[in-house]
């Protein structure tokens, strides 16, 4: 269609000026469109009220040794297990080098008797069994995921089955002896 344009301006440096204006305005247009799009994309990120629920406090006083509780944090279950001395020693006796996701039990807990992990199987997101006394706990006394048969030990580490990683340890802190803040 260039030949239908006004031929008087087709010559010499008129073309380069026109090209420059085209590229410059196109660039401004593309950057502007990108900037205008950002608020829409960002609106799908967690909103302020969602972020306000990003931490949760748990009272540990009713949890006796050998028991476990499940609390909800960011819409997901968090396993808080009051481990027995046997469970702790079992977790610490393992040869770390032989694990799929090598991690020492000491690095996974802040206090040896309290294990806090996100209760979501690292395979495809099911919730492993093992919180209740009657649940199957797998071959290593920790958790067993019924979806695809992943076995976790008493430190929440993957020992057998398809899951690639240990149960995730969330950010948490003990506010005092009997209260933990997750997140």
């Amino acid at each position: 269609m260039a030949d239908t344009a006004n031929p008087a301006h087709g010559a010499t440096d008129g073309e380069t000026r026109r090209d420059f204006l085209l590229y410059a305005s196109s660039a401004v247009g593309v950057v502007g469109a990108g900037l205008a799009l950002w608020p829409f994309i960002h609106s799908m990120n967690p909103a302020a009220d969602t972020l306000a629920l990003a931490s949760t406090e748990v009272d540990l006083s009713p949890v006796a040794e050998g028991q476990a509780i499940t609390v909800m944090w960011r819409g997901k279950p968090v396993f808080v297990r009051h481990r027995t001395a046997d469970e702790i020693s079992a977790a610490r006796a393992v040869d770390v080098a032989g694990l799929r996701d090598p991690q020492k039990d000491e690095d996974r807990v802040k206090k040896p008797e309290w294990l806090v992990t996100v209760g979501v199987c690292t395979h495809l997101g099911c919730i492993p069994l093992g919180q209740k006394a009657a649940d199957p706990r797998g071959d290593f006394g920790g958790w067993f995921c019924p979806c695809h048969g992943s076995h976790y030990d008493t430190s929440g580490r993957i020992r057998k089955g398809p899951a690639p990683l240990n149960l995730h340890v969330p950010e948490y802190a003990f506010l005092n002896d009997k209260t933990v803040k997750i997140g």
């Binding site: 608020p39 829409f40 960002h42 609106s43 990120n45 909103a47 302020a48 009220d49 969602t50």
Partner: peptide
Amino acid sequence: ERIMRDVNYGWLI
């Protein structure tokens, strides 16, 4: 109101 106050750029949209 949540769109106006909490959702990112909700007021703008």
